[in-house]
Simulated scan of single mutants.
Amino acid sequence: MTQSIPAQPKDTFDKAARHQRLLELLEAEDAANGEVGCGRNLGKGLSGYLSTRGVALDDEQLKRLLREHLGHILMEPDFDSITTQIQRRLESLVGQSLDSSSSFAPLLNSTNVTEHIPTKDLRELFQPQLADFCSEDTLEHLIGLSHQIIHKAVLQPRHTWSKPIWVLRGETQIYIVQETGSEAAIAKVKTQHPQETEKLEVITVGGILAPDQVISLNTNLL
């Protein structure tokens, strides 16, 4: 008699599907935060990641402190980026502190990092919010990482990053334009090339281009 292979229980498949769906939701959250391709490989650390999701800083308090000290240098996109990065570092540090075999990554040479916000002010902001979650060592490490993140933002402000270029296809022309988004890119093309009345198709996006410039190519030449 031929013995059939037992079917895998349905709940096993359901569990795998739920796990995959959860990963997709986390990926979508990162994309919504502008962190596509951030490189966080959850893998077996998923349960540890979820256990730290409740550990969060008050973004508005942190942004208020950033505006107070750096409002003359940085703008809201910079503050959004800084708070997101600090929150990610906090989750990572708490996850490491839960794993006794882990140790904190060494900080960069502090002499090369300017404290744009006094350590005292950062400690006064972080400590009340994190006292129940973090040890003193974790708090100090987070402060050091925050100095690094803020210093890097001051050196390379996010609001000065070049806008991406968009390659758009019309009926007879290819347009290359630099703008923040597809709608703005299409509007710029039609402003500079009012004869273009057909629907424009986005072919690709990325890279940089000289500001306020639209390059038009005849598709018959491609």
Rank of each mutant, 00 (worst) to 15 (best):
W161N: 11
Q61H: 10
S135K: 06
Q87I: 01
L26M: 12
T160F: 07
C38M: 04
E201K: 14
K120V: 08
P157Y: 09
L70G: 11
H72S: 15
C134V: 11
E196I: 15
P128F: 09
V177W: 01
L23D: 04
L221S: 07
G37S: 08
M1S: 12
S92F: 12
G48P: 00
S101M: 10
E140S: 15
F104E: 01
L90N: 03
S101P: 01
P194V: 03
E115S: 15
G39I: 11
I117Q: 07
G34C: 08
D30S: 12
A153Y: 05
E68P: 00
V177R: 02
P118L: 11
S100C: 02
R64A: 14
Q213N: 10
I73G: 00
I150T: 03
H159K: 08
L125N: 10
V189N: 05
I149G: 04
E68M: 14
A32C: 13
P9A: 14
Q85Y: 07
D59N: 13
A210P: 01
T83P: 01
N41Y: 13
V94E: 02
D11H: 11
Q148H: 08
A185N: 13
L145N: 02
L62I: 09
H69F: 14
E29H: 11
H141D: 05
A56S: 14
D58H: 12
L200D: 04
K188S: 13
W161A: 14
L93N: 07
L217M: 13
Q148P: 00
Q213E: 13
C134R: 02
A184G: 04
N112L: 15
H72D: 15
Q96E: 12
I5G: 00
P77W: 07
Q173T: 05
Y49D: 07
F133S: 11
T52N: 04
V113E: 09
Q20D: 08
P164L: 02
E24H: 03
N41H: 13
V214R: 06
T160E: 13
T172V: 08
I215V: 09
L57K: 03
R89V: 04
V55A: 15
V113Q: 10
I186H: 01
G54F: 05
L42Y: 15
D14H: 10
S135F: 06
K190D: 05
E196W: 01
H151I: 05
Q96I: 01
Y175F: 15
I208T: 14
Q3D: 02
N41M: 09
F126M: 11
L108W: 03
K44G: 10
H141A: 04
K190P: 04
A105D: 14
H69I: 01
T197L: 05
L23S: 05
G48Q: 04
I186S: 12
I174N: 08
A32K: 12
I165F: 07
K152T: 11
E196H: 12
G34L: 09
L125M: 10
R40D: 10
S4R: 04
N41F: 13
I143G: 03
I117L: 08
